Amino acid sequence: MALFGHDEKQDLRLDSLEQHVRGLSQLVQQTQMDIASLNLTVMSIQTQLADKLSAKELDPAFETLNNEIKSARVELDRVSEAASDTWQPLQAGVSESLSRLREQVEQLKADK
């Protein structure tokens, strides 16, 4: 028996928290894979360019990506500052923003 006899409410809350933790775990794993891939790409680009070109000269798409990263960071800051009862809608917004960023990176990889 749960505290104060609210078994169903506590079970729902625990299920919601478990689902959120699973989602965060998947997001962290995907982010780690993305970072590893990006690090390899950056190392390859640095080797190839040997500081001959600036990022703006190389491809204007880097500026777009940079703006998306800034937008994602702003969204992450909002999530950090949010009250605990509003984290779900904000988390959905962050996930959407990061998903868009990931799609743009994948599109740039495919275009090159």
Rank of each mutant, 00 (worst) to 15 (best):
G93P: 00
I45Q: 04
V21D: 13
E68F: 11
Q107V: 07
Q19C: 05
R102F: 00
S95P: 01
I35R: 06
E68R: 07
S80D: 09
L17Q: 04
V94W: 04
N39D: 08
A82R: 07
R22S: 11
I45K: 05
K56C: 01
L24R: 15
V74E: 06
K70V: 08
H20T: 10
D11M: 05
V74H: 07
I35S: 05
S71L: 12
Q29H: 06
S44A: 11
P60E: 11
Q48S: 14
F4S: 01
K112N: 10
M43I: 13
S25W: 04
Q104G: 09
K70E: 07
V42D: 03
R100L: 12
F62N: 01
T86D: 01
P89D: 14
L49K: 15
S44K: 14
S25M: 07
V74W: 09
A72P: 06
P89N: 10
E18K: 15
S99D: 13
A92H: 08
L53H: 12
S54H: 04
L98Q: 00
Q10K: 03
K112R: 12
D51Y: 14
T86G: 02
A2K: 09
A36N: 03
S54Q: 05
T31F: 04
M33G: 00
Q107I: 04
A110Y: 01
